[in-house]
């Protein structure tokens, strides 16, 4: 297990967070189960998980960077590349598809001037296709900051974009 002072910080986690993770790792039998928690914490602070984040996670848990990397790259909600301030996950699964999900995705791409997978020039939005978000009864929907916005259409989604723009400016 790592000691706090050995860890290169790069501002990915707060010092107290690192101390807490190390403390917790020392208390449980299988610290490796914390990988996702740590990666998610880094992502929350930094927006995405850079190589240094993978290394930091490995150091905290006493793993190799490769052992962390093969986990990090498995999950689509861990971003290993830079994303905008608000990644927008657009559901493209069957219930949303049946109620205008494709049209919604096309509208968003047109409105923001970027294709799926791209980030707007102002760095605010990244459009990411996603499988079912668990809001099938309120289709079609998108997820932003782990919140589901259902019953979307051109008008609703523009309101949401506007709301997020204002939130970012505030």
């Amino acid at each position: 297990m790592a000691h706090e002072e050995n860890i290169e910080q790069a501002g990915l986690l707060e010092e107290e967070q690192i101390a807490e993770f190390i403390h917790h790792a020392g208390q449980i039998e299988h610290p490796r189960e914390m990988i996702i928690d740590i990666l998610r914490a880094i992502q929350k602070n930094h927006g995405w998980v850079p190589d240094e984040g993978v290394e930091l996670t490995a150091t905290i848990l006493g793993l190799t960077a490769l052992e962390v990397e093969e986990i990090a790259t498995f999950y689509d909600k861990i971003y290993r590349k830079p994303v905008g301030r608000y990644p927008i996950h657009i559901c493209d699964s069957i219930c949303c598809w049946s109620r205008g999900g494709e049209e919604l995705a096309a509208h968003l791409q047109e409105k923001l001037g970027v294709a799926l997978g791209q980030t707007t020039a102002d760095g605010l939005f990244t459009l990411l296709p996603s499988c079912c978000l668990g809001g099938c009864g309120r289709a079609p929907g998108v997820m932003v900051d782990q919140r589901f916005y259902g019953n979307q259409n051109a008008e609703e989604i523009e309101k949401l974009i506007e709301k997020l723009r204002q939130e970012a400016a505030a």
Binding site: H30, R32, E33, M34, I35, I36, D37, L39, R40, L61, E70, I71, F74, Y75, D76, K77, I78, S130, C131, C132
Partner: peptide, 23 residues
């Protein structure tokens, strides 16, 4: 225990690997 996406995690043995912090 929180996850980070991917449907295969619902398969019970994949879930156990995921919970353990393995691929």
């Amino acid at each position: 225990h929180g996850s980070a996406g991917r449907y295969i995690l619902g398969e019970e043995t994949a879930l156990l690997n995921g919970l353990e912090g393995k691929r």
